[in-house]
Computed example of a mutant assay.
Amino acid sequence: MKKNLLHLPQPKVNIMDSLFAEMLLDKALLDFQKEKLQQKIDQSLREKNKSEFLRLTEELIKLS
């Protein structure tokens, strides 16, 4: 016997849970981007690349 999936009850989505999940993902992405930028800034310092350092720090400031 074939079940008709269209007639199954759909789970209710809690809007607050969805917003919380979205905020959590946004924060995780932002933290990841900042960490990558900080690593690149450290690399530019090791290489004594002033122009790259200034560009990356500007980018980090915009993210903050």
Results as ranks from 00 to 15, higher is better:
residue 3 K to C: 07
residue 22 E to L: 12
residue 57 T to C: 07
residue 50 K to W: 07
residue 37 L to D: 01
residue 21 A to N: 11
residue 51 S to C: 00
residue 15 I to H: 06
residue 23 M to E: 12
residue 11 P to F: 10
residue 41 I to C: 07
residue 49 N to G: 07
residue 1 M to H: 04
residue 6 L to A: 10
residue 9 P to M: 05
residue 38 Q to P: 02
residue 59 E to K: 05
residue 44 S to G: 07
residue 47 E to R: 12
residue 42 D to I: 00
residue 33 Q to E: 15
residue 58 E to R: 08
residue 45 L to M: 12
residue 13 V to E: 03
residue 47 E to W: 06
residue 18 S to K: 14
residue 3 K to P: 03
residue 62 K to G: 04
residue 63 L to I: 03
residue 27 K to C: 03
residue 27 K to I: 06
residue 54 L to I: 10
residue 4 N to W: 13
residue 7 H to L: 13
residue 10 Q to D: 03
residue 58 E to L: 04
residue 48 K to W: 04
residue 56 L to D: 02
residue 63 L to K: 06
residue 18 S to G: 06
residue 51 S to P: 00
residue 39 Q to S: 15
residue 58 E to V: 01
residue 48 K to R: 14
residue 55 R to N: 07
residue 18 S to Q: 14
residue 14 N to A: 09
residue 8 L to Y: 13
residue 7 H to R: 11
residue 36 K to S: 11
residue 59 E to S: 05
residue 24 L to I: 02
residue 62 K to E: 14
residue 24 L to W: 01
residue 54 L to R: 10
residue 5 L to A: 09
residue 25 L to G: 03
residue 25 L to C: 04
residue 41 I to H: 05
residue 22 E to T: 11
residue 45 L to C: 06
residue 23 M to W: 03
residue 42 D to K: 08
residue 17 D to M: 07
residue 36 K to W: 02
residue 47 E to S: 14
residue 47 E to C: 05
residue 4 N to P: 01
residue 12 K to T: 14
residue 2 K to G: 06
residue 28 A to H: 10
residue 29 L to S: 12
residue 20 F to P: 00
residue 34 K to H: 09
residue 8 L to A: 12
residue 43 Q to W: 01
residue 46 R to P: 00
residue 12 K to L: 14
residue 7 H to N: 10
residue 61 I to E: 15
residue 57 T to P: 01
residue 62 K to R: 13
residue 37 L to Y: 05
residue 32 F to E: 15
residue 19 L to S: 04
residue 53 F to R: 05
residue 62 K to N: 13
residue 32 F to R: 13
residue 18 S to P: 01
residue 51 S to W: 02
residue 42 D to S: 11
residue 50 K to L: 13
residue 8 L to G: 03
residue 64 S to R: 11
residue 16 M to F: 08
residue 17 D to S: 11
residue 36 K to A: 15
residue 41 I to E: 06
residue 12 K to W: 01
residue 9 P to Y: 06
residue 47 E to H: 08
residue 4 N to V: 08
residue 21 A to C: 04
residue 15 I to N: 02
residue 12 K to D: 12
residue 61 I to D: 11
residue 24 L to K: 13
residue 57 T to M: 10
residue 7 H to G: 03
residue 45 L to Y: 01
residue 62 K to T: 07
residue 26 D to C: 03
residue 53 F to T: 03
residue 6 L to C: 05
residue 53 F to G: 02
residue 61 I to G: 03
residue 45 L to K: 15
residue 43 Q to D: 11
residue 1 M to E: 06
residue 35 E to T: 07
residue 50 K to F: 09
residue 9 P to N: 09
residue 22 E to R: 10
residue 40 K to N: 14
residue 50 K to P: 00
residue 14 N to S: 13
residue 43 Q to E: 15
residue 23 M to G: 11
residue 21 A to M: 06
residue 50 K to S: 08
residue 1 M to W: 02
